[in-house]
């Protein structure tokens, strides 16, 4: 387990919406609603969170609108939403 860690080099490969797409990209919506398009797939939810420096116990993750566990594979054309679990009441 490596979190938290600096943003890794391979995540600099980010495309703005509308730019030409490669064969394997996925759209990741971060907890702050920032959208990133990543050229890296397939990867597991656990790997993705690890690379982003997000603690797995502090978020839930939906793939194409469906909740998935950390072992789920994420691939090309998937929309991945990372939702922070707000604390307290």
């Amino acid at each position: 387990m490596k979190y938290p860690r600096p943003w890794p080099d391979r995540h600099r490969d980010v495309y703005a919406p509308g730019m030409p797409r490669s064969e394997a990209i996925m759209k990741v919506i971060l907890p702050d609603q920032e959208v990133r398009v990543l050229e890296q797939a397939p990867v597991t939810v656990r790997d993705l969170l690890n690379e982003l420096g997000i603690h797995p116990l502090e978020v839930i993750v939906a793939k194409n609108g469906v909740l998935v566990p950390e072992q789920a594979l994420l691939g090309r054309d998937d929309e991945v939403r990372i939702i922070r679990i707000a604390h307290g009441g």
Binding site: V66, V68, P69, A72, L73
Partner: peptide
């Protein structure tokens, strides 16, 4: 894709 240990449906 991980499956539910109780019914085999996709796991959440």
């Amino acid at each position: 894709m991980p499956r539910c240990d109780l019914c085999g449906e996709p796991a959440a």
